[in-house]
Design a protein around this nucleic acid. Structure first.
Length: 185
DNA sequence: TCATTAAAGTTAT
DNA sequence: ATAACTTTAATGA
């Protein structure tokens, strides 16, 4: 079991994977920084999720960082033990497969969103996905976006200012509601 | 139209 | 207090 503080890295771009990581508590983001320092967030993960496992399977260097957002406890299992466990536990194998597929699905959805030129479409795509994960309540304004505007911007490849302006426009169009700076969708 | 820069207000640590 | 985030506005590609 490992502990990490905000802004620490569980692994970095270019590292060769040697462990399986499972988040017990806290939040982690998978990200990249471009030469000019701009961050693109690939995904934000929290308790119960694993990070970087897809790369562990193919044994290539990580193409992204796993940067800690909030104080984290992480279960760390060496690669050989992880694969042993996987062999011995069909149930675990199935769970990992499901989680892997979920990650693929997210990538697929976001890939389509990002290729859209329109910022509102991108942000709405992200919000639709997030809300779809969260139970059945399709009711409008029933889902609180669990991210900061900066994070939303980094997840959709927009600058913060554009994200903010777009979200305000969506409020005018009654797509979202803003309460105490929190975004309800 | 959106990104960038700058400046100022607000929240969290 | 200080850093991180939010917001507005001006400017440029």
């Amino acid at each position: 079991m490992m502990s990490y503080s905000p802004s620490e890295y569980i692994f970095s771009e270019g590292d060769v994977p040697t462990y399986y990581y499972q988040i017990i508590s806290g939040e982690v983001k998978l990200n990249n920084y471009s030469e000019d320092g701009k961050e693109f967030i690939q995904n934000i993960l929290s308790a119960g999720q694993s990070c970087g496992e897809s790369i562990l399977f193919i044994g290539k260097p990580y193409p992204m960082n796993a940067e800690v957002i909030t104080e984290c406890r992480v279960l760390r299992l060496p690669k050989p033990q992880f694969f042993d466990l996987l062999n011995q536990t069909p149930q675990l194998f199935l769970e990992i497969s499901t989680f892997l597929s979920q990650g693929l699905y997210y990538k697929f959805i976001m890939m389509q969103n990002i290729s859209s030129q329109n910022p509102a479409t991108r942000i709405r795509g992200l919000m639709d996905y997030l809300k779809s994960l969260h139970g059945r309540s399709d009711a409008p304004y029933s889902f609180l976006i669990p991210f900061t505007r900066k994070q939303v911007a980094s997840l959709t490849g927009l600058c913060v200012e554009t994200a903010i302006r777009t979200i305000k426009g969506m409020e005018r169009d009654k797509i979202v509601k803003i309460k105490d700076r929190k975004i309800l969708y």
